[in-house]
Design a protein around this nucleic acid. Structure first.
Lengths: 343, 343
DNA sequence: GTGAAAGCGCTAACAG
DNA sequence: CTGTTAGCGCTTTCAC
């Protein structure tokens, strides 16, 4: 059996309370007693039982991070930043994979409701409006992604519209006019009844169209390529198909860097030179984009801002009332990082 | 205040024990009572308090996974597999970043000792022999990586020696003779006093030398390039420096895919064609290697075997006595995946 | 400055 | 089949 605070107390000839006080440095304890306690702790190799402390405190010291798939570079790099931001606040992070499904996301929320986590950061792609009630009934939640912008829950968004618009303007400045956009599948269900775009897909698409029209160009539906996933393979397949169909294009805006990297590969397979024949711009600035051949021009959202703000918000919500009386809806900043792929 | 099992019991007019039995389906409960209990659970929106259950059970249902840096592709892909393997067994995974340091690894072990985790999977690069006592004093641990092969703790290793040897043989078959090897820094301290290589660096190096000698070639110290990290940037810098120094080489074996991808980038920067001028082989088969330009030939260890075996071992250790009476030391299999970078 | 009592929410063990 | 008792290990009262 593991040694308890009681064992230490007996060994040191004091009460459990005194040991507790020594451990937590709460009340000032007589020096001699403290020494006796410390000695006993050492000698018995005592370790606090965190489960018991948690039960008492009503908190777990753990937060959940729910991402679609942890092995995607974007998710992995987000997880890394969240783990660090949490560690800086004395919290641990359980990584949940939702498998890009509403069900997986609801499971994560359920685990949060079961007080497994003090709070949850969820990069949602599948939740719908009717799930909001579950979200708010759970322990504190901060939403990433775009589905819940302005829905009465704390939300940190990416510069979807402005980022893509910026990418398109950059390509137009470089003299490209036949600019295609490559994406994964749109999200299944709208979260609001309004006509305002409210997911990453639609927002990025609208930024693309906006920047074209602004330059006096009418978006060409043929230049909108929608694949069936959000991974590198999708980018590759889309690029191959664009070439093989004889589509006329001189630039690609990819909705994610992973798709862009696949597109680079596909273009190379078809002998198209980047950037001479086709310029390519991605979105995310995952670290791999610095090392591709050619190096990838991309929209770089402020990743640290995302992680830090999410953790700040979450710790605030954990400390305060839930549901919160007032929610935050913030869109992080971005930079256009010009590298080789756009000339 | 959240509703407790007691509240449910009162509402349903039964004892807490009956509620518990209903919840866990342990003992058969009278249908009518069960219905009343279920109804009360629904009505009060009752959720079990996992902290309390954990305290009672003496387990947390959570394991730790300690990796050097989660945002490296290799770690992210390992984490993904472990999270899935754990989920299949009803366990959650806390991801710990050790920051490639012995201190970070000891912290993870300390948290395991504090019963935060039922067990720990640790991809160690920094622990030394003197830390073994801490490892064994903690809750169940399975070690990945090479430092603790045959050290009285469960260990799953990569096919370091044979993998690299296989890479070299492949290059020799392709007619290459000036085969360089590019690596990050060796690990700081030996875990055993013996002369047997016992870390990834040394094992992969010995496989390289072995295959060369086997073919009647004497390893050339000039062809051993040791960078100062294990990331893509290192591979890039090493390749640049090899070219700039006028080193004579016609192939590179990189100790990891990340390094290989950086080397591809560096070679492109210096106008060396791959594979015509220089053939490149990596190690790990991270998914990015399928999409690089050129696509990367690599040694592909059986990643699923690693995750599944680690989880199997860990759950076994959690259920059984600790420290274990007999330990497992297993090296997973591998395949040579030939792609464009080696011709 | 220190200790005794009580209880966080749950469930094993036993009694009924 | 159901309820009572007791206690997991810790910490918040509130005496002393």
């Amino acid at each position: 059996m593991a040694t308890t605070i009681q064992d230490v107390a007996t060994a040191a000839g004091v009460s459990p309370m005194t040991v507790s006080n020594v451990l937590n440095g709460r009340q000032s304890v007589n020096d001699e007693l403290r020494d006796r306690v410390m000695e006993a702790i050492q000698r018995l190799d005592y370790r606090v039982n965190v489960a018991a402390r948690n039960l008492r405190a009503g908190r777990t010291g753990t937060i959940g991070l729910a991402v679609p798939e942890i092995d995607r570079p974007y998710a992995a790099q987000l997880a890394s930043r969240v783990v660090r931001a949490a560690a800086a606040r004395g919290l641990r992070v359980v990584v949940e994979e939702t498998g890009t499904s509403r069900g997986g996301e609801l499971d994560a929320i359920a685990r949060s409701r079961v007080r497994l986590y003090d709070g949850l950061i969820i990069a949602s792609v599948g939740l719908a409006a009717r799930d909001l009630v579950d979200v708010l009934a759970a322990s504190p939640v901060v939403m990433l992604g775009e589905r819940f912008s302005g829905s009465g829950v704390d939300h940190i968004g990416l510069p979807n519209h402005d980022g893509t618009a910026s990418a398109v303007r950059h390509l137009l400045e470089r003299g490209r006019t036949r600019i295609a956009i490559v994406a994964g599948p749109p999200e299944p269900e709208r979260t609001t009844a309004s006509d305002m775009p409210n997911d990453g897909f639609e927002l990025r698409m609208s930024g693309y169209e906006h920047a074209l029209r602004e330059a006096g160009l009418e978006p060409d539906p043929n230049l909108v390529i929608v694949g069936d996933a959000w991974d590198t393979e999708t980018g590759l397949q889309c690029a191959l198909s664009m070439c093989d169909r004889g589509l006329d294009f001189d630039a690609i805006v990819a909705m994610t860097d992973s798709i862009a990297l696949g597109a680079l590969r596909g273009l190379a397979d078809r002998g198209r030179r980047v950037p001479e024949d086709v310029a390519v711009v991605g979105f995310d600035d995952i670290s791999e984009s610095q090392y591709s051949t050619p190096r990838l021009t991309t929209i770089a959202p402020d990743h640290n801002e995302i992680a830090e703000l999410a953790m700040d918000l979450l710790t605030q919500r954990i400390a305060g009332p839930w549901p919160p009386t007032e929610t935050v809806d913030h869109t992080v900043g971005f930079r256009l990082v010009v590298r080789e792929s756009s000339g």
